[in-house]
Amino acid sequence: MDKTLNHKAWFLVLPVIVLVAFSAVIPLMTVVNYSVQDTFGNNQFFWVGLEWFEEMLHSERMWDALGRQLLFSAIILTIQIPLGIFVALNMPKSGFWSSFCLVMMSLPLLIPWNVVGTIWQIFGRVDIGLLGYTLDALGISYNYTQDIFAAWVTIIVMDVWHWTSLVALLAFAGLKSIPDAYYQAAKIDQASRWAIFRYIELPKMMGVLMIAILLRFMDSFMIYTEPFVVTGGGPGNATTLLSIDLVKMALGQFDLGPAAAFSIMYYLVILIISWVFYTVMTNLEKKEG
């Protein structure tokens, strides 16, 4: 749609700006202020310059958390994106069963995140959970509170359970926008199922898939609630992802300076990803008109 040039539209946006400035800009400025100072409590601050940044950049703890975070995001992307596409390809295309699948698949997306954690915390327990009990009965040792590998498997399966449907629903929307003519042409060419997927469906889904990948990456990058409820970051620090570590530092130990420096770097990374996301999205919208 053509938009009219009208600078008075600023007045319509003003309430949002005031509100978001209050809840985003002021806190961010505070974080910057804290990041260059040390405190003994009671609002007694003194200047330390870039010391906290230097400390955090050389802190093994932060790099370890970042490493775990990247590993987590990479694993869930490699599982969720192909699985989501696969599910979308197998979904009924119309009729009652299509909406049935849509509603059922939306269900995990809309469960409160801490309840997602609770569900899997219970489900995976060896004594009372269906999953843990079954695995135990099959003779597989599985204890997510003690065993690092089991803890990782649990939070990954949980995230797959929670979010694969989002990828599937986005891919499904992309598939439905492919006109019939494409399939008819493929049929005339006697294209194989794989060729149809590779040369018709995949290119047509590229746009939504890009959005799905970026959304999943970003949300997994700042995941907090679900793993916190299930493992609390343990055993040891094995599942302490970036957000969990940051909250431990900021609110658990109340280390304002280091936590603030950590926050700023975390935020800068998120800012870059958001920018890529926004640029990709607006360019897609331009292309599709």
């Binding site: 804290y34 909250v247 900021a250 609110l251 936590a259």
Partner: peptide
Amino acid sequence: LLTNRMAPPAVFALPF
């Protein structure tokens, strides 16, 4: 505005 949707709440918990 969008960056605020993407920002990790963990960053804001302490200043809030």
